[in-house]
Design a protein around this nucleic acid. Structure first.
Lengths: 196, 196
DNA sequence: GACGTGCGTAGACACTGTCTACGCGTTCAT
DNA sequence: ATGAACGCGTAGACAGTGTCTACGCACGTC
């Protein structure tokens, strides 16, 4: 019998445990020693694969970025042929991810992780942004605005909504209890008044 | 002679030291003991005024919010009579603050601080948001959109740009080296194509 | 002058991340 | 088959952290 959910090497098991842990206990619970404990190894073991605590956290966060990319990709694929609707689906997917996987989302955008450079955003996030640029360009072909700029601003808008909504600042200020109107407003703003 | 920049009580001196420290060493350097050390007291002293490390950090972050509010208020006041320009000034001021006071900005939007409720956003940030709502309403009086929604979306957009630009994700994706175009795009998007 | 009280000290505790020396098993070469 | 090398995990030490507790010192008032 398998001692513990398939022995696929300690390296990935540590990351598995981390993903699980951040999901149920939040980003604050991701101490090196606790992860090792949950994985059933001594506190020195992770060092063999991750030279530093931060690099382990980065590997965990990476899983998050991959998951987000996949989820967003599916959302986009589901509306093939209608760029505007694809952008909408992407946006909703992003926001949904942030609100569902709160701990992971928090981890993914921690300053120290991002600054460490271990995250590999170039590989995980840039492609997604590329498709957003593409979709934006096709969703508003007439506009003279640079798609990359529009996409960047929209990207930031999504992120801002997800973040602020996540910790309650926005519902406090706006007075709503559903982020949907904000999302609609952002999309309408950057893509132009869409067909209802 | 004053032993140390005016003895205005340990409580506020701790916060002073914290502001100074976060400015020169970043948000990661704000350990309770280091702050106490710099203030020239023992590590147990802060406890008399701040029951927990987080509450001290919150007090420091609060200084940041106050500073930001003041700076934004001045920017707005400098363009009295032209709502659109006032919003622009507010936006630029916000972004400017984020990029100038990086450590403080990072501290201000740390999840654990925001969730702790010690921050008092209701007092420091809500008023500013209120004036933004007001300005938005006056900047685009014709539009049927709810000003609070538009302002909320714009607010999130600003924050997203500041955040993403701050850690380099956006310049990587967009390929620019100046956040100004993004800011313009966001403003144009939410307020409508402005007069150039 | 004694007493209470505000304010800061000092030490303990559990916990953290990192570093080092060690052991144990497998594998490979001779 | 035997010995060396190596991969991989253990175990202990170390400095640093946040929190808690007991203690002391100096000041005020009665």
């Amino acid at each position: 019998m398998a001692e513990r959910e398939q022995d696929t090497g300690l390296r990935s098991r540590l990351v598995d445990v981390g993903v699980e842990l951040v999901d149920e206990e939040g980003a604050g619970a991701l101490s090196l020693r606790e992860i090792a404990r949950r994985a059933g190894v001594s506190h020195g073991a992770p060092r063999r694969y991750f030279p530093t605590h931060l690099s382990l956290l980065s590997a965990i966060a990476r899983r998050g970025f991959e998951g987000l990319a996949i989820q967003a990709g599916e959302a986009i694929a589901a509306h093939e042929g209608d760029p505007r609707e694809q952008v909408t689906a992407l946006a909703r997917s992003w926001l949904d991810f942030a609100l569902t996987n709160r701990g992971m989302f928090e981890l993914m955008f921690r300053h120290d992780l991002l600054e460490s450079g271990h995250l590999g955003l170039r590989e995980t996030s840039l492609p997604l942004f590329g498709t957003l640029v593409d979709l934006v360009a096709r969703a508003r072909p007439d506009s003279g605005a640079e798609p990359r700029i529009v996409a960047g601003a929209l990207w930031a808008n999504l992120h801002g909504i997800a973040q602020l909504w996540g910790w309650g600042s926005l519902q406090l200020a706006v007075g709503a209890d559903d982020p949907e109107p904000l999302l609609r407003a952002a999309l309408d703003a950057h893509l132009g008044q869409g067909v209802r």
